[in-house]
């Protein structure tokens, strides 16, 4: 078995090595996108709130809107995105072989992915993390009160390992109830077979919103036991393209900081604030530095919206998931969203 794993790892490394070799000479991504007239974006095939086709088959969600924002910045038209649905295994290959220009697929930014695997990450678009959900009537306010509890968890992911680590670190005991299928693990929790259910907090909120008999009967505990910063990824070796994707994310966050929305962006072009003028291209220069039109950020905000709008529409109060902003609030409101200065 160990030998098999070793052979598998060697093969995978060989494939990745080959891919990295060919990617380095693939040429600037921006030129490719301009000549094709479309941004190719690898997304999750179906994950509500991040990338999920609507009834007419158009991808909706935070990741999908990030892709649209890039298209708006580069091509001036948020509609010029080709979405490539990618599952967990193939997502990196798609990016490496050049079949995708960007990977916006709820992908966690890790050291190995950033280095050996050959990717670079743009700023985080969603700070996720593993948490716990319990029934309100249990009266539990913190995960530290879960000593001896039965906990529902799905096997085979880091979720299970994080759970064990957390309880060991805090010298608590627990009984895992391991169930493979999402539907079944959710049913087990809501039918009371376990005291708590653990997975990523966005997943907990989605489960509570869509499956709880009464969502108000359940609470998500404040502890976050693992960090899952989700960020768009691009190939290593094309700094120009990384800058464009990074500043697209910053433009959405910066617009929220400055109160620029898709509704008021036209009025804001006449704003007295010099930074707003620079963002929207009223005083030119920043677009040229990115090798883009000076209207790049204006197009993003006008056609897609600022980060807050995108969040509320896909994940927040205006969506079925109804996730709180939490860590994803602006830094001025206790969150981690922080745009670098536009100058």
């Amino acid at each position: 078995m160990r030998r098999l794993k070793f052979v598998g790892a060697t093969l995978a490394a060989a494939v990745l090595g080959l891919a990295a070799g060919s990617a380095a000479c693939a040429g600037p991504t921006l030129d490719g996108v301009r000549s094709r007239g479309v941004v190719t974006c690898a997304v999750n095939p179906g994950l509500a709130g991040f990338a999920m086709p609507d009834h007419e088959g158009n991808y909706q969600g935070l990741d999908a809107d990030t892709c649209r924002a890039i298209a708006a910045a580069v091509l001036g038209d948020a509609g010029k995105v080709k979405f490539v649905p990618a599952n967990a295994q193939q997502r990196f290959t798609l990016l490496q072989t050049g079949e995708a220009d960007v990977l916006a697929r709820n992908t966690t930014w890790t050291l190995l992915r950033d280095t050996e695997n050959g990717f670079n990450f743009a700023p985080v678009t969603y700070y996720d993390g593993q948490g716990f959900m319990v029934a309100k009537k249990l009266g539990v306010k913190s995960a530290r009160e879960l000593d001896g509890a039965t906990i529902c968890v799905q096997p085979g992911t880091t979720t299970e390992l994080n759970l064990a680590d957390y309880f060991r670190t805090n010298h608590l005991s627990f009984k895992p109830l391991v169930i493979e299928k999402l539907d079944e693990v959710e049913n087990a929790f809501f039918s009371g077979r376990c005291d708590a259910y653990t997975t990523d907090r966005s997943g907990l909120a989605a489960t509570r919103a869509s499956k709880a008999p009464n969502p108000d009967d359940y609470v998500i505990l404040p502890e976050i036991i693992s960090k899952e910063p989700l960020a768009p990824a691009v190939r290593q070796g094309d700094d120009e393209w990384l800058d464009i994707v990074s500043w697209t994310v910053f433009a959405m966050i910066g617009a929220e900081e400055k109160g620029i929305t898709s509704a008021n962006v036209d009025a804001m072009t006449r704003s007295d604030d010099p930074e707003v003028q620079r963002i929207l291209g009223s005083s030119p220069g920043l677009g040229k530095a990115l090798h883009l039109d000076d209207k790049w950020a204006y197009d993003i905000i006008k056609q897609v919206g600022n980060y807050g709008e995108v969040f509320e529409r896909n994940l927040g109060a205006r969506s079925r998931l109804n996730l709180p902003r939490g860590l994803n609030a602006l830094w001025t409101k206790g969150g981690l969203m922080y745009a670098m200065p536009f100058r």
Partner: peptide, 15 residues
Amino acid sequence: LQDTNTALNDPAWRM
């Protein structure tokens, strides 16, 4: 089949 799997991710119809 994948269409069905995808549509079932809709929070409104998970069950």
